[in-house]
């Protein structure tokens, strides 16, 4: 038996500790937003956060997540259910096409903005190069991240004016 914390929920699972986290999330836990693309850490479709850092869940054995915090695409809305600024920006910029890579793209983008709140295009390229988009949404991913960065930057000020 092994215990996982995913999106703040606790799961007790009877499972081979070597099983890649990806399949545990998709099959045992039943969260299907995280995708399988290559299985060898080449495409980024399976990106989730482990203690806030982006990882490839297809090559991460589930035991490595025990005692740590896993966040998937289903767990990034805020407490009141509002979309994360990156998700909002993705809608504004109309980023997704087929959409299959986008959970992974969004998880990588959020991790980037947590580390670097005002990335330029080179920072974006470096942080996002592990995520393939076969539909070629790269120009919009750049715009989406820039927009989200601005939204995050002005969010606290907005709050202040409302408070004041």
């Amino acid at each position: 038996m092994l215990t996982l914390t995913i999106n703040e929920d606790r799961y007790d699972l009877d499972i081979d500790p070597q099983t890649p986290l990806l399949w545990v999330i998709r099959e045992q836990v039943g969260l299907t937003g995280t995708k399988f693309g290559c299985g060898i850490a080449q495409c980024g479709a399976c990106t989730v956060h482990l203690d806030g850092k982006p990882i490839r869940s297809c090559t991460t054995p589930v035991f490595a997540a025990v005692g740590r915090t896993v966040t998937t695409i289903e767990g990034i809305k805020n407490e009141s259910g509002e979309l994360h600024p990156v998700q909002q920006a993705w809608i504004e910029e109309q980023v997704p096409q087929c959409g299959y890579c986008q959970s992974g793209q969004i998880m990588s983008a959020i991790a980037l903005l947590q580390k670097n709140p005002l990335p330029d295009d080179t920072d974006i390229d470096n942080a996002m190069r592990g995520n393939i988009c076969r539909c070629g949404t790269y120009p919009r991913i750049r715009k989406g991240i820039q927009r989200a960065a601005k939204m995050i930057a002005i969010a606290p000020q907005k709050k202040k004016t409302i408070d004041g």
Partner: peptide, 17 residues
């Protein structure tokens, strides 16, 4: 705005898999 996009940013879009 495209009608399918909201479900493609929060993981709720259902693909065959």
């Amino acid at each position: 705005q495209r009608l399918d996009i909201p479900s493609k940013v929060d993981g709720s879009a259902k693909f065959g898999i």
